[in-house]
Design a binder for these strands. Structure first.
Lengths: 137, 137
DNA sequence: TTCCTTGCAAAACTTTTGCATTAAA
DNA sequence: TTTAATGCAAAAGTTTTGCAAGGAA
């Protein structure tokens, strides 16, 4: 039976990423469960568990992870990026008060029709965000 | 027959906004047609046509216009906001290379089904962005 | 040795804020 | 004259970059 850490080592290698110390620390936190974290939240988690990872390295590697398909970067906020450990196609609820995200499975949404892309272009992805506020009653 | 400028004066007043010089200059550029502009693009347009509007005033007023429903602020980019002069419900295409936005009318999209919001929450809005890239063939 | 990775601090970019000045009612 | 709006420059929040130092192959 392989040690716990080996799981992440393998996942990084499988995506063509050298498993360095910092990258493993980042993966251990971010990939532990399906979640959405901002860089700042992730940095706080890392520091809290004693991992020494600089801000520059964190950003560089989040970008790398996203490029290699290990995580997904969500741009749906004015200011910051969210990093999503769920790379399966899916959509999101967003609580407008807190900014918190919840997954919406593809099975929960069905399009009856969608417009065709303009000539010479193709659809790279569809982002659907259902913004939520507290009910008024 | 009223002068051209009167149109924007009236629109501002109709939204409870005092029509000051700067606000009229901003409205004249942004509301001239259905378009999507970033604050920086708008500032450049204003300066180019000789309007003196400071950055702070521009941002303050874009925020105000959005609050009062005169324009819509789009948060679909990592870093900057887009200001949309079309306040009718609609969706967007986004060219991933240039960031440019194109409207998608509500009639062009139909949902067969959507998930129910969690208890105590209601849907405040649905943002749909169809990301585009050049076709590969 | 050679190449890749890291860390720090500074820079970059967008947006907001404090406050004195100016314009508008 | 009283309130509201503006402009400037500085601050704030997030992300990127330059470069020297450290680590892996």
């Amino acid at each position: 039976m392989p040690g716990q850490g080996a799981v992440y080592t393998e996942r990084l290698l499988a995506h063509g990423i050298q498993p360095t110390q910092q990258r493993l620390r980042i993966a251990e936190v971010l990939l532990a469960s399906a979640q959405h974290l901002t860089a700042e939240q992730l940095l706080a988690s890392l520091r809290q568990r004693g991992a020494r990872v600089s801000k520059a390295t964190l950003y560089n590697n989040l970008k790398l992870f996203a490029e290699r398909g290990l995580i997904r970067e969500l741009l749906l906020d004015g200011s910051r990026s969210w990093f999503d450990s769920n790379v399966q196609p899916h959509y999101h609820f967003q609580d407008l008060e807190t900014g918190a995200l919840t997954d919406v499975g593809v099975a929960e949404v069905a399009f009856e029709h969608l417009p065709s892309p303009p000539p010479g272009m193709e659809v790279a992805g569809i982002d659907l965000v259902i913004r939520l506020r507290p009910s008024r009653r």
